[in-house]
């Protein structure tokens, strides 16, 4: 099958790549753009390790085709820090030791950032349910929830 030329915006930069029409957005990010921060944990939309946003909507990039990304704006974990400055969520994850193996971490950070953009003061239950699609096998989730709540509070203070 011939490849398709895709033009899109990733982490605020215009990029283009050639994609096999059957490749997922996750594959395109990882294999064509070298953005390996998004992980594959299942490939079926059940684990959240591949979470990115497309035009502000949180999606599992393993469930979207790369060619569908044409003309859209994609945000991945690699775009979360501003240069050397970590996003408050990233800092809080370090502070709360909110990961162990770290494999789920990029997806959870992307999902949490998306939540706080929509809802700057979520309740703990809202955080839990928002992150219900992000599996973590190591932490037991406690520190993850605490880190998100803490980051939300800091960001509210700064706003």
């Amino acid at each position: 099958m011939s490849k398709i030329h895709v033009q899109t915006i990733v982490n605020r930069d215009p990029v283009e790549f050639l994609a096999d029409p059957r490749e997922t957005l996750l594959d395109c990010l990882r294999d064509h753009l070298g953005l390996t921060g998004s992980k594959e944990g299942c490939g079926t939309g059940d684990c959240g390790a591949c979470s990115v946003t497309v035009d502000g909507t949180l999606i599992s990039s393993c469930l979207m085709l790369g060619v569908e990304a044409g003309g859209k704006s994609i945000e991945t974990i690699e775009g979360m820090a501003q240069g050397e400055d970590l996003h408050p969520l990233q800092r809080k994850f370090i502070e709360h030791a909110a990961f162990q193996c770290g494999y789920c971490t990029p997806g959870i950070l992307v999902a949490a950032k998306n939540l706080l953009e929509k809802n700057p003061s979520p309740t703990e239950t809202e955080v839990r349910y928002w992150l219900a699609g992000n599996l973590c096998r190591c932490t037991g989730y406690d520190k993850i929830i605490r880190a998100v709540m803490d980051a939300a509070e800091e960001m509210r203070g700064a706003a």
Binding site: R30, G34, L35, T36, G37, S38, K39, E40, T76, I77, E78, M80, A81, L86, Q90, R91, F93, I94, E95, A97, F99, Q100, G102, Y103, T105, P106, L109
Partner: peptide
């Protein structure tokens, strides 16, 4: 001491490499 994980910064930035991430 409760020091953070060794590669904490890499993990939160998506830069920590697993096998499939090695160029």
């Amino acid at each position: 001491r409760p020091l953070p994980h060794d590669a904490a910064r890499e993990h939160v930035s998506g830069k920590a490499r697993y096998i499939d991430d090695i160029p």
